[in-house]
Write a protein that binds this DNA or RNA. Structure first.
Ligand SMILES: [Mn+2]
Ligand SMILES: [Mn+2]
Ligand SMILES: [Mn+2]
Ligand SMILES: [Mn+2]
Lengths: 151, 151
DNA sequence: TCCAAAATTTAGCCTAGGCTAAGTATTGTC
DNA sequence: GACAATACTTAGCCTAGGCTAAATTTTGGA
């Protein structure tokens, strides 16, 4: 026999609004996180991060990359040397490191749940921007329990 | 001793771009999903869904709600009876039901991982738009295993 | 019935993030 | 050293989704 689904009465209007506000905030920062993470990856793996490669890997036109990089520069995350690629400021580097750590944790968690690699990566690309620190802690705990099951 | 982190070489540019494209697609549909889900909740819990209540609960101005509802109407998800509130079309109702089922599954999963209620709800509000069917299946499997641990 | 309060719409503005087409600048090869 | 290919920028466009301020419309109570 199946238990009735838990009743979930509507939250207060203020609480409800706060949740959506957090979601909007995450959406606003997602692009910056993805760009700096990708720039850091390219610098590490290829030695340089060119705008043209960002465009290819983001699946977006070069003009869009130019505009986005402009915003990242304005916000102090990125520096450019024309025809010499993109570089991260200190702040950009910190953001990239945090984004990558979070990205990797989400991927490992989804893999541990049984997802195939490509699905885990694809889902992580969106999910990573919306998980709280508490959720990340819970993911890490889950992974740790997996590795030392009896202990 | 700690194992070295798994090397994750960069995916092909096409695969990489496909992941970001999926993320952008999810972002595009997120607002519609949240609105129809909220309209359905209000209709069920309060008997009517007024634009003014959507504004309060979304944490957004009434003018913004008017504009958003206009897009939802254009897209065949919502109908309005001025000063009598908002209603869902058949398609809107289907989308709302799917969104609610997904929302609730994500919340139950996060609760099972040990998150407190408010964090689970807040995270779910964003995460729900970025989890694939495969991930949802994995979440459901995890919950089922929890309920019948020995079996 | 009147009319103030509430709900809704309209107008006008903004930013992020997309696009194409057409420039301009640099590189690297012959 | 010239110059084609490549990289990048600029111009001009678009939509979604925010905002405030100012109508306008409807409701409901005195
Ligand atoms: Mn991402
Ligand atoms: Mn990422
Ligand atoms: Mn949501
Ligand atoms: Mn939801």
């Amino acid at each position: 026999m199946r238990r009735a689904l838990a009743e979930r009465p509507l939250p207060s209007a203020d609480d409800h609004a706060a949740r959506f506000a957090r979601q909007r905030e995450a959406d606003r920062t997602a692009t910056a996180e993805d760009y700096v993470e990708l720039i850091a990856d390219l610098l590490r793996e290829e030695g340089e991060a060119r705008a043209v490669d960002l465009a290819r890997r983001m699946g977006v036109s070069q003009a869009t990359v130019t505009a986005t990089i402009g915003r990242l520069q304005r916000d102090g995350l990125v520096e450019t040397k024309p025809y010499r690629g993109l570089f991260l400021t200190e702040e950009g580097g910190r953001l990239a490191a945090a984004a990558k750590a979070r990205h990797d944790l989400v991927v490992r968690f989804l893999l541990a749940l049984g997802l195939d690699h490509e699905t885990a990566e694809a889902d992580a690309e969106g999910v990573e921007h919306h998980v709280s620190e508490k959720a990340l802690k819970a993911f890490a705990r889950f992974l740790a329990d997996r590795e030392t099951p009896g202990r």
